[in-house]
Structure formats: structure tokens, C-alpha cells
Design a protein around this nucleic acid. Structure first.
Lengths: 214, 214
DNA sequence: TATATTATTATACAATGTGTATTTATCTAT
DNA sequence: ATAGATAAATACACATTGTATAATAATATA
């Protein structure tokens, strides 16, 4: 514990950070072993050797602990993924690779994924918009889109943030769909279709456009 | 109460249906007046003149009452909307009209919308997939896409259910985005951009149907 | 009418999350 | 180094949620 000495950090701040880390570690151990619902805040507090009320000082709800954990994983994953992106030839393959990486994790951690997505949506609604709300996957996707625009491959009349919306959301939805019934389809195959739809749109290109005004 | 006599319905079934309706009515009155969090299940039960436990027999969680209400509203709205769709010339205008209608309601009921979306996502995760999980807006969008495919306007190599995913999801996301900070943009303008993106895709084209926005 | 079935209820319970006040640890200025 | 300021940790009490159990009431069916 406290292996890293961060310069402008007093004892209090360091201990807080350590406690926070310990909570996440201890909580995730319990949750992975017993399931989310079967793990109480009491237990987590006990195991982390703090009072229950203190635990609530660090994380206002149980889901927030899971969210913190997923953010850390996601950031870590994004860092690794980012390096490999430039090796790939175009936007399509980059998108597929990035999503593929993310799903690998999702497939192994379905419960955690579901809890985290639900929590984030709820928070989005309640409007407490955090500035550090940017997850690892999101930053990866943003970079892919930026690269695509730079190369002239993607349309430039739409901002990165507008373009990221659909693809980011597709990701969430496909995951949810898959969580509902894991045997129904293969996550990756479905994702490939969605990426295609995102890139080329829903309009039929075989025939000339039929957009007539009257 | 009990104004409609449904043929094969005994006394018990009728009373159950009536109680259910009464709960939704009473609960929504309270929630609209006091807010969701300030309305307790105790209060709702009291007002509906049933025991708290009985209330839980009808709705397992408070959010489920709101969801039920939104479903009813949504179905009603969809019926009205559907009639006007055929008068419109193409998919683009139909999509915009349908979403426009839906947003009118959302703008008036932001809290309810947020609660309902959050609840549905959570349920999706937990995998209890209801067969009657199809909302009014979804059926409207499905019909629009079906019409578009029939006219050869939309690509036919993708199923309705696949095509509906992105547009349905866009809808949710734009709403969420708007809920976060209602002053930031106009719901309808943003939606128009998203519809374009859905139809024409993110790829840069030689003769592009450029997005028309400021 | 008698009986089986199902819904309602009272009661008790575990757990979540909050508010308040007290104690403890850390930081800062002298 | 010490005293006071500041912030965190804690104990305690509380309202609320949602569940489990068993007794009671209402309804359907024979």
C-alpha cells in the first residue's frame, strides 16, 4: 500500500487515496465471489476496516464502487488498445478492433457491466454531469474518429462529439442486448453489422436517391 | 371505475384491473405534485386505500408504476402519430415527425422520462425480458422503417430490428443529453442532425447530401 | 353450501442511504 | 512544538425500501 509517492501530497490525502483503493479492492473481491446483491455495505466496510458511514463518505451508493472499478479497468484497457490502432489501415478495422477488445472484458464480467451501465444512465438523468465522465472506451473511439476525419475518410461536417454519440451508444445497446440472452447471438458478429450501419447509413445506395419533393 | 365490461372477465380479475389503474392514477398524481423521491410507497398505498404489501404485489418497485404510466401514454401517442405518417412523403420526414411528437411529451415530463429510461435499462440488464416490452414509439419507428424498405428507400440487407436499434437508441441518448442540461441545445435541431447521420452514415462521400445545420 | 384457490393483510426483518452530533486525526500559523 | 482551525471518521438514530412468513378475507369451483 502507498507504494507511489506523489510529490504534492500530504499524509491525509495519501491515506484517503489508499482507503479508496482498499475499498474498491475489497468490495470487488466480495462482489466477484458472492454477487452484487449478496454483498452488503456493512460487509464491505467491515472488510475494509472502516465504519459503514465512512464508506458512504467515499461512495454514495454501492453501484458507485463498481463504477469506479470499471473506470480503472477501462482506462487501463484503452491505453493498451490505443497503441495498436495506428497499425490498422482504416476506420472500419479500427472500430472493430476497439470494440472487440472492450467486449472481451464484457463477456467475462456480465454482472458488473450491467450494474455499471445502469448506474451511469441513472446518473446521466439526474444531471450531475461530472467533467471526468470520460471513460477509456470513449476516448479510444474519439481518437479513432479524429483519425478518420483527418484522413478524409469520415465526413467533416459533423463534430467528433456528434459522431461519437451513435457509435458509443451502439456499443452500450448491443452489450445490453447480449446480456439479456447471451446465447442468442455472437457479440462480435452483431457489432460488425452495427459498425457497417454507422459508416454507410441506412439509405439504399443501389438506386439513385428517391428524395423527391412535392 | 369499472366502466368497461370485458366479456370473459370475472369479478376478481376486474377488481384487480381496477386496483391497478387506481394505483397508477393515484401514484402519478402524487409524483407529479411532490416529485418522485418525495413520494413514498406508504403514501401511495394509503391514498389508493390498500396495504403497502399489496401495493408491492402489483408493482415490485416504485419505478415500475412510472413505467406502466409511460407505456400507456406512449401507446396512446403512437396511435395518433401512426395515422399522420402515411401523409408524409419520405422516411426522413416521417422520422422527424415521429420523434418530434415523442419529444413534445418528453419536454413536459423530464423527471418521469428519466426515471422510466433508467428503470428500463436496469431491467434490460437483469435479463427479465418481457414479450410485451415493445413501447409505442418503438412500434411507430418499426412501421416507418418497414415503409422505407418497402419503397426501396432504405437498404433491405438489414432487418427492421437491426435498423431500429440505432434510431431508437439515438432517441434515448439525445433525450438523456437534453435532460442533463436543458438549456444547452434544442431537442429538435439535435435530432435532425442525428436522423441525417442515421440515414447517410459517417463516411465521407463524393457527392454528399451535406448536413444542413448552422 | 363446502372447498380449493388466490389476494390481502399484519407483522417482522434485513439492508440502504441520510442527518446530526461527537470524537479523532491532520494541517497551519505562530 | 503547541494551539487552534479544518476536515474526516465515527456512533447513533431515523425514514424508506423491498422481502419473507403466516394468518385472514374474498372469490371461484364443485
Amino acid at each position: 500500500m502507498g507504494s507511489k509517492n506523489i510529490p504534492g501530497e500530504g499524509r491525509a490525502e495519501r491515506k484517503k487515496r489508499e482507503t479508496r483503493q482498499k475499498i474498491v479492492k475489497v468490495a470487488m473481491d466480495l462482489i466477484q465471489r458472492q454477487g452484487f446483491d449478496n454483498t452488503t455495505m456493512e460487509q464491505i466496510a467491515e472488510e475494509a476496516d472502516i465504519a459503514r458511514k465512512t464508506l458512504y463518505n467515499y461512495f454514495p451508493v454501492k453501484e458507485a464502487i463498481v463504477d469506479q472499478y470499471v473506470r480503472e479497468m477501462s482506462a487501463e484497457l484503452a491505453q493498451k488498445t490505443l497503441k495498436n490502432l495506428l497499425k490498422l489501415p482504416d476506420t472500419r478495422s479500427r472500430l472493430l478492433a476497439a470494440l472487440d477488445n472492450a467486449y472481451e472484458w464484457v463477456e467475462v464480467n456480465p454482472e458488473i457491466t450491467g450494474i455499471c451501465l445502469g448506474y451511469r444512465l441513472k446518473n446521466t438523468c439526474n444531471g450531475s454531469l461530472n467533467s471526468d465522465n470520460f471513460t477509456g472506451t470513449q476516448s479510444t473511439l474519439a481518437e479513432i474518429i479524429r483519425l478518420g476525419q483527418e484522413a478524409g475518410e469520415l465526413r467533416q461536417d459533423a463534430s467528433v462529439s456528434l459522431l461519437i454519440t451513435p457509435i458509443e451508444v451502439f456499443r452500450g445497446v448491443v452489450v445490453l442486448d447480449w446480456l439479456k440472452d447471451r446465447s442468442r447471438f455472437e457479440l462480435r458478429k452483431e457489432m460488425a453489422k452495427i459498425v457497417d450501419l454507422f459508416l454507410y447509413g441506412a439509405i439504399n445506395r443501389e438506386e439513385p436517391p428517391k428524395m423527391k419533393h412535392d
